[in-house]
Amino acid sequence: MSRVAVIITDLFEDSEYTEPVKAFQEAGHAVVCVGLKEGQTVKGKKAGTPATVDKAVTDVSVSDFDALLIPGGYSPDKLRVDEHAVGFVRDFVQSGKPVFSICHAPQILITADVIRGRKLTGWKSIIQDIKNAGAEFIDQEVVIDGNLISSRQPGDLPPFIKACLAALSS
Rank of each mutant, 00 (worst) to 15 (best):
Q128I: 13
G44Q: 12
A135I: 01
I7G: 09
S2T: 12
I108K: 11
G134N: 09
V86H: 11
A23Q: 03
A67V: 09
D91H: 00
K119L: 01
Y74D: 14
A5L: 03
I8M: 06
L148M: 13
G72S: 03
L69N: 00
E16M: 01
A135S: 06
S61D: 12
G87L: 00
F100N: 01
D59T: 08
Q25N: 01
I144N: 11
R80K: 14
T18C: 03
T121N: 10
S61I: 05
R80G: 12
G146W: 06
A163V: 02
G28C: 06
V86Q: 10
S63Y: 08
G28E: 08
P159F: 07
R118E: 07
G87F: 02
C164R: 10
Q94K: 15
R116T: 03
E83P: 00
G73N: 06
K46A: 04
A67L: 13
V86N: 12
G146I: 05
L109C: 04
A30K: 07
K131S: 11
G48C: 03
D10W: 12
E13L: 00
A5Y: 08
D66R: 00
T111E: 15
H104I: 01
L36E: 09
V114Q: 07
D14W: 07
V32L: 04
A163Y: 12
F24A: 01
A135G: 08
V6W: 11
P158C: 10
D145P: 00
N132I: 06
V81H: 14
E136C: 04
A67D: 04
K45T: 09
V93T: 13
I138L: 15
P76G: 06
V81A: 15
P98V: 02
A166S: 14
L168G: 02
G72W: 00
S61C: 08
P20V: 02
H84V: 01
G122F: 07
G28M: 05
E13F: 02
H29A: 10
S95H: 03
K22H: 15
A67F: 04
K131L: 05
Q40S: 13
K78L: 14
G48S: 06
G96I: 04
H29P: 00
L157E: 13
D64Q: 04
D113H: 04
Q140N: 13
N132Q: 14
I108W: 05
A5I: 01
I7V: 10
L79A: 07
K97G: 06
V57T: 09
A47H: 11
Q153G: 09
P50M: 11
F65K: 10
S170T: 15
Q153R: 14
D145H: 01
D10F: 10
R80F: 09
G87R: 03
Q25R: 14
G146Q: 04
D156R: 09
S95C: 05
I102E: 03
A67G: 05
